[in-house]
């Protein structure tokens, strides 16, 4: 007698599991599924939006203007991230007709969420396409050039802020926001 309720219980559980499985199958592909389930249960959190990119190659843009490319290993609700096999890449704009870039291997990165501007999942088939019509230069050169550009920009923007302030306007530029 005492066994029957237990059996019923497990039978119900099995049924529920089966129902769950068939619901999953009704939805689209495998990974999309996981993401949808998370989105439903964690609609309030940042976590739901990033969970689908775990163990994939992603691109991260940081507040200081850096671009990082790496494999997302883990994250939390603040968008703190851990990246593996990270590459930092610098794109140089307004440098004549051919654009230039430089890149270097950085390894493991732990990024504090407040410094993240955006996170994008890369299409690994086309990720290098845009680099083909660019010229690769050494990371040191690219780094020096971008530093100069940033210094110039900080100078320009602070001068602009002063002028605006004199006219009673507030500029939202901050030297920590160089993205």
């Amino acid at each position: 007698m005492s066994q029957s309720p237990v059996n019923q219980g497990s039978a119900q559980q099995q049924q529920q599991q089966q129902r769950g499985q068939s619901q999953n199958q009704n939805q689209s592909s495998g990974n999309q599924n996981v993401e949808d389930l998370y989105l439903e249960s964690y609609a309030f959190t940042t976590a739901a939006a990033i969970v689908g990119s775990v163990d994939r190659k992603i691109f991260v843009s940081l507040r200081d203007g850096r671009y990082l490319y790496g494999i997302l290993r883990t994250f939390d609700q603040f968008a703190n991230l851990v990246l593996q096999d990270t590459i930092e890449r610098i794109y140089l704009k307004d440098e004549g007709s051919t654009k230039k870039f430089g890149e270097t291997y950085r390894g493991v990165f732990l990024i504090r969420g407040e410094n993240v501007v955006m996170i994008g999942e890369l299409d690994i088939d086309t990720e290098d396409e845009h680099l083909q019509d660019m010229q690769q230069i050494s990371f040191e050169d690219a780094s020096n050039q971008i530093q100069q550009q940033r210094k110039q920009r900080i100078k320009d923007e602070t001068a602009k802020s002063k002028q605006m302030l004199a006219k009673g306007l507030i500029s939202d530029f901050s030297s920590t926001d160089l993205y």
Partner: peptide, 29 residues
């Protein structure tokens, strides 16, 4: 989410020639 973080799918950049690195990105947080 509650911080108004946004997640976009099928993205395209309006001023793409200025930001070529966004071409190969499928979705964006």
């Amino acid at each position: 989410d509650q911080f108004l973080n946004l997640k976009l799918d099928n993205i395209s950049c309006v001023n793409e020639d200025k930001y070529p690195h966004l071409k190969s990105i499928k979705n964006l947080f």
